[in-house]
Each structure stands twice: as C-alpha cells, then as structure tokens.
C-alpha cells in the first residue's frame, strides 16, 4: 500500500494544483516543465542506460514543433495527425544519424548530435520558404481532439501532464522489462553484455531513436501551446539545458527527469529575476554561466544527481519496512 500511496498522492496533487494557482504565469511555467520533463525522460534513457549523450536534442524538439506548425498551417492537417508526424519525423532522422555513429565504441554520437543541432538551427533560419526564417510561423491552431479544444492554459496543463504521466509509466515498464535489463547490462559493461549476446549497437540506437521521438512529442505539443514558432528556442544552449536537467535530476532514476526539469526551469526564472539586481543591465544570457558551472560541479561532485539522493531515501525506507 505504502508503495503506491506516494505516486497516487503526487498525481492528485498535480491534478489539484491548477485549482490553487490562479496565475497564468505559474501555470505556463508548469506546462513548460512538463514539456521539458518529457524530453529529459528520453535523454535520461540515452545517457543513463545507453551511456551516450546528445548535444542536439533541441533540434529534435524543434523538428517536432516545426512539423506541427507546417502541417497544420500550410497543409491543414488535423492536429492529431500532425502530432503523430511530429513523433515520426524526429525518430527517422535520429535513426539515420545514430545508425552509423552508434556502432562505434567512442562518443561520436556526441559530436554528430552537436553538429546536427547547429545545422538544424541554421536551416530553421535559412529555409525561409518552409520555416518562415528568423520570424517563424504564426497561426498554429489549438490542439483539437474529438470536439475538445485545448484553447486555455488550464486545459493544456492537463494535456501535457497526462502525457508526462503516460510517458513515465511507459518508461517505468520498459526499464523493468527485458529491454531495460539489457540496457542496464550495457551500461555496466559493454563487453560483458556483448558476450551474453546482447546487440549493444542496436540497443543504443533504439534508446537514441526513442529519445528523439519523445523530444518530437514535446516539440509538437509546444507548437500547439504557444501557437507560433521561431528558431530561437531550439539552439545549442537549449540542448545543453536538457543535458543539465538530465544530469541534475540524476540519470537512470524515475524521479530524476521531473526534478531536473523543475529545478533548472525554476533556477532559470530565478536567475532572470536576480541577475539584473546583481549586475545592472545584464540580460538573461548570463544565466548560462551559472548553468555551465552547475553542470561541471554536479558531474565532478555528484555524477548521480539528485535523483540518486531520492532513490537512497526510498531504499532506506524499504530497508526499514523489511
């Protein structure tokens, strides 16, 4: 009983939260945290289980967003079909990039995704005929499914957090399945896993494609939420922020992605408010110094992240129960 009490309480708390929050600003932040959490869950699998890192996930996030934007505005697709396309396209692209690079033992995926991320950001700006260039695309319709229109923040909040819940449960099942065990084996020792017949390259590729699909989902939902899209939120710094969220929250933990996304978004907002007080005239770009410093610090001092601390609590609780 105790084991499910905490998650159920948490779900009820999230469901009840909008009744307490009357500010659209806070609700907006919670929506963004939910969207980022979906991406970080995928990135966490790639980093925590496959031992690979992507510095280009903002590009998959952006491809998802632009897919929805183009398909709903120029092609007038129904929103659900556009959202499905926003899952498929990033997955396909990831398979093309990941296929050759993940066969190698080294971290070439990091370099490939770095290049890919910058390239896609350049293309968002340069392919003006499709993406609208730096000014982007406007007039994306609200997400509509079976007569239900997600036209208000509160409705979108429930949509996004339902998606977070579904993805979390799906991933939780996945990591306790045969595939999850194989992934953990690869993380512990690639050679040992290969010797027992695990196709490590295929497994890493699946993790990468899956993480790109999740980033595409978040991107598609993002486009429906803000109803316009431009290249600026999909640059290299966003990719680094996703890595930071995954690392701060803790790799290979259940609560890590939620914690990481929440903390980094909250920290970003706090810094946006606090930096001009300390450095007069400073813009939001200075927060990147802190993000970089925190990233280094966590990796040197506590590579397990905060999720590891949470799991430790859980383990000690379980220990007491026995």
């Amino acid at each position: 009983m105790k084991k499910i009490a905490f998650p159920v309480a948490l779900i009820l708390a999230f469901a009840g939260l909008p009744l307490l929050i009357k500010s659209n600003y806070l609700l907006g932040i919670l929506i963004i945290i939910g969207l980022y959490a979906i991406i970080v869950i995928g990135l966490g699998i790639l980093m925590g289980y496959a031992g690979q890192v992507s510095f280009g996930h903002a590009a998959f996030f952006g491809i998802g967003g632009y897919t929805v934007a183009v398909l709903t505005t120029a092609c007038h697709w129904p929103s659900i079909a556009a959202l499905i396309a926003a899952l498929i396209l990033p997955g396909l692209v990831a398979a093309i990039i990941g296929g050759p690079t993940l066969k190698l033992k080294e971290l070439y995926l990091a370099l490939a995704t770095l290049a890919f991320g910058i390239l896609v950001h350049i293309l968002f700006n340069e392919l003006k005929g499709i993406t609208g260039g730096p000014s982007g695309l406007t007039g994306i319709p609200y997400f509509t499914v079976g007569g239900l229109v997600f036209d208000r923040d509160i409705r979108f909040y429930y949509l996004v957090w339902s998606a977070v819940l579904l993805v979390s449960l799906g991933v939780n099942n996945l990591i306790h399945s045969r595939v999850g065990r194989a992934m953990r084996a690869v993380r512990e020792s690639e050679h040992a896993s290969e010797s027992v017949g695990i196709d490590t390259a295929a497994l890493k590729l699946q993790a990468f494609v899956f993480s790109a699909v999740l980033a595409g989902l978040a991107g598609g939902l993002y486009a429906f939420y803000v109803t316009f899209i431009s290249p600026s939120p999909f640059g290299f710094h966003t990719s680094v922020q996703f890595v930071l969220m995954a690392v701060v929250g803790g790799l290979g933990t259940f609560w890590g992605p939620l914690l990481g996304a929440g903390l980094v978004v909250a920290l970003g907002e706090a810094l946006r408010w606090a930096t001009p007080l300390v450095i007069p005239g400073a813009g939001g770009e200075y927060q990147i110094i802190f993000f970089g410093a925190i990233l280094m610090l966590v990796m040197i001092v506590k590579p397990g992240g905060l999720g590891a601390v949470m799991d430790l609590f859980k383990k000690s609780e379980e220990g007491e129960a026995h």
């Binding site: 980093m47 031992g51 690979q52 890192v53 510095f55 080294e106 971290l107 990091a110 710094h237 680094v240 890595v243 930071l244 690392v247 450095i279 770009e285 200075y286 990147i288 110094i289 993000f291 970089g292 410093a293 925190i294 990233l295 280094m296 990796m299 040197i300 590579p303």
Partner: peptide
Amino acid sequence: ESSALTLIIITVGLSISLRGLALL
C-alpha cells in the same frame, strides 16, 4: 576516473561558462 560521458559533459559546461565570462 570518470567515464568519457561525464568528461565530455564537463567540457560543455566549461565551454558555456567561459563564453559567459567572456561576455561579462
């Protein structure tokens, strides 16, 4: 003694911090 993954993430953190400092 950390993994290559940890080290590459550290250098990314370093890179954006140094760039931020240069901006400052």
